[in-house]
Amino acid sequence: MVGHSERFGPGVPKELDRYLIPSEQIVFMLRRHWVVLAEPVATSVFGMILLAWASSLDNVPGLLTQILTGLWLLLLARTILRAWEWYEELFLATDRRLMLVHGIITRQVDIMPMGKVTDMRYDRTVTGQLLGYGKFVMESAGQDQALSTINYIPDSDLHYQQISQIIFAPSEGKVTQKAAAPGSRVPISEPEQAWWRRKN
Rank of each mutant, 00 (worst) to 15 (best):
P154E: 08
L92A: 03
G62M: 14
S140P: 09
S140D: 11
Q143V: 13
E172P: 04
T125N: 03
Y122R: 03
V109P: 02
A169M: 01
T94P: 01
G103Y: 01
G103V: 03
P154N: 07
S171E: 08
L130E: 02
V175N: 08
K174R: 15
M138T: 08
V126P: 02
M138S: 08
L100N: 04
K135V: 06
E139P: 09
L131G: 05
D155I: 08
H159Q: 12
T69K: 14
D58P: 10
Q165V: 00
I153E: 07
L158S: 06
K135S: 09
K174N: 13
F168H: 10
T127I: 11
T69M: 09
D144L: 14
T118K: 12
T149G: 05
L64M: 13
G173K: 09
I163N: 03
I111G: 09
I80L: 15
L68F: 07
S140L: 12
Q162S: 09
D58T: 11
D123K: 07
Q177I: 10
G132T: 06
E89S: 07
S164P: 04
R82S: 13
I80A: 15
D110M: 12
A93W: 01
I105W: 02
F168S: 06
K174I: 15
L64A: 12
A77N: 06
T125V: 02
T176Q: 11
Y160F: 15
L76R: 03
L74A: 13
Y152A: 09
K178Q: 14
